[in-house]
């Protein structure tokens, strides 16, 4: 089984990379949605999956990023892809400010507070906070992104932009997982008291997880704004946070492949069964209960890190 695994991953990647060649524009657009949700879920996975912090307000960070990008682009004509780091920074800083006073709260309390934060952000956007968010109508007229002189417009073009970001994220997050930082988040999730008692500054890592996960949501927000050219508060409502939460839990909290698989299932499957679209959430609700009863660790659970025997031998010397 272990020999088949790298092969399966290579096959899936190759299939995905060539997908725009044999899929129609609509189907590619679905893949783009999956990619965006995948990016958001990978960010949330740092907070919820790796660090075990119940964040049900991820859409708020997504919104801060998207609105930052949209405002910078429409008001100051900054090219939309240039706004990516700024959107990430804005969302990350916002998350730090919000999380700081509440991050010590225990599991389900943190969940409720983050729901509250998400709603406050949405209400603030609807009420046209600072007179800059366009109220319920949102912001429109966001310009198309340009990369190496090519204007990105068609779904096929967006596909490579979005999935390029996903690929980069996978590489970076896998490296992070294999590091002191990644391990610290896991210690936090497994046992906070023991982590602090092993010399880990748990308060710092909780905030860092929130900041980094939110920064990723913020950058994804900028991509979303670029793809849609128009954004409004309803794209960032409570249910977006719920869907993201669900993707991480169903996929296997702390497992990157599992999270991406779940993004495919949760976002992609309803597109295959469009006649039952209205029953989508009903099924999700049921799946959440059934999963928790029969397979709480998710589809692809996070295991311990693999260390090659060579590393072990070297370490031993």
């Amino acid at each position: 089984m272990n020999h088949g695994k790298p092969f399966a991953i290579v096959l899936a990647a190759a299939l995905l990379a060539t997908a725009p060649l044999f899929l129609n524009a609509y189907q590619v657009d679905v893949l783009n949605s999956i990619g965006l949700y995948g990016l958001l879920a990978l960010g949330l996975n740092l907070i919820l999956g790796e660090a075990g912090l119940f964040n049900m307000g991820h859409a708020a960070f997504y919104a801060v990023g998207a609105y930052t990008a949209a405002m910078l682009n429409t008001r100051y004509q900054i090219p939309i892809l240039w706004t990516l780091p700024l959107s990430g920074l804005a969302a990350g800083l916002f998350a730090l400010a919000v999380a700081r006073p509440v991050v010590h709260l225990r599991g389900d309390y943190l969940l409720i507070v983050t729901i509250g934060v998400g709603e406050i952000v949405r209400i603030a956007l609807v009420n046209d906070i600072f007179g800059m968010t366009g109220g319920a109508n949102g912001i429109f007229g966001i310009s198309r992104p340009q990369l190496f002189g090519i204007v990105i417009r068609r779904p096929q073009e967006f596909f490579y932009l979005i999935w390029g970001c996903v690929a980069l994220t996978i590489v970076l997050f896998l490296r992070l997982k294999q590091s002191r930082f990644g391990r610290a988040l896991n210690y936090l999730r497994e046992d906070e008291v023991a982590a602090e008692g092993s010399g880990i500054n748990t308060a710092y890592y909780k905030l860092a997880a929130f900041g980094l996960g939110a920064a990723w949501a913020g950058m994804t927000g900028a991509l979303f704004a670029a793809k849609m050219t128009i954004i409004s508060p309803e794209s960032f409502n409570f249910w977006e946070s719920v869907v993201l939460f669900m993707i991480v839990i169903l996929g296997g909290a702390g497992n990157i492949a599992g999270v991406l698989l779940a993004a495919f299932l949760v976002i992609g499957l309803p597109e295959l069964f469009r006649e039952f679209a209205s029953a989508r959430m009903l099924v999700f609700g049921l799946v959440m209960i059934v999963m928790m009863v029969f397979r709480p660790q998710g589809l692809l659970p996070a295991g311990g890190r693999r260390f090659s025997l060579a590393t072990l031998a070297r370490g031993h010397g």
Binding site: R183, N186, Y187, E190, D191, V193, A194, A195, G197, A302, G303, G304, R305, F307
Partner: peptide
Amino acid sequence: RLFQRLTVLE
């Protein structure tokens, strides 16, 4: 109080 789902090394 161990980190139950992590390896001994971790």
